[in-house]
Amino acid sequence: MRSFLKLLVLAAIVGAGIGLWVTAPNRVDAARFDGLTGDAARGETVFTAAGCASCHHAKGSEDKLLLTGGMEFVSDFGTFYAPNISPHPEAGIGGWSFEDFANAVTRGVSPEGQHYYPAFPYTAYTKMQDQDLSDLWAYMQTLDPSDVASKPHDVGFPFNIRRSVGGWKFLFMSDDYVIEAADNERGRYLVETLAHCAECHTPRNPLGALDKARWMGGAPNPSGSGTIPALTPDKLDWSAADVAYYLESGFTPSFDAVGGHMAEVVENFAALPAEDREAVAAYIKALPPLDE
């Protein structure tokens, strides 16, 4: 009996140890950035493609480059608010190092070592190229600071235990690409990494992770009303040129005009080179159909 108790205590200690190890923040190795210099002009393109302003500008504000935050994201786990990521030293991220920024964007880990909630699409950004990350950081420091404090998330138990996000990451975070795209790496990088299209266009499992077996299969609108359309060829019959023109102009093939959050996405894509829109269109048209 006594030895059984010992074994149980040992198992508990090992279990807790594994639990702590699994849920611990996984940081970048800063040495990997040695010798990198950020180019702010190139960073603007990364910033646009990654859609940073679309979620981090103040709701209703015309100035999309003042990254005050505040936009809300309603989910089954609570309501998340986009934080201030302007270069303000206290309210924003002005006091961060590049390493802090890399940990936030590609690992979902704050400078204090806390896990961010995956409403922040670091599960996509984790595949961001080092040079792009460095350029993005250089660009973001050129933007105006906002002194508005970030709004705390409204998340209930048990999701308010940030450590649990570590377990979520262990289960669901991967830097593997979903689609084979040897002949269209730019398109895949834009869709799966920077523009994080799947965050809305792919359904989620009960724990809020993307259901990769139903990649781009369409999903309920997180805002609660309506659905986000599927992009797979069994559902979307647009040509590649139609997709590229939609991303440039916001017009569908029947000349309905884009609305909702997608209007922000089109605004970003319209500012990118035509080759980028064509690469995205080629990726979309190469998606495998989903059999229903």
Binding site: G226, T227, V258, G259, G260, A263, E267
Partner: peptide, 12 residues
């Protein structure tokens, strides 16, 4: 079109 849809039209 976008400016108005963005604010005043609900998603499908």
């Amino acid at each position: 079109c976008k400016a108005c849809h963005d604010t005043y039209r609900a998603p499908e």
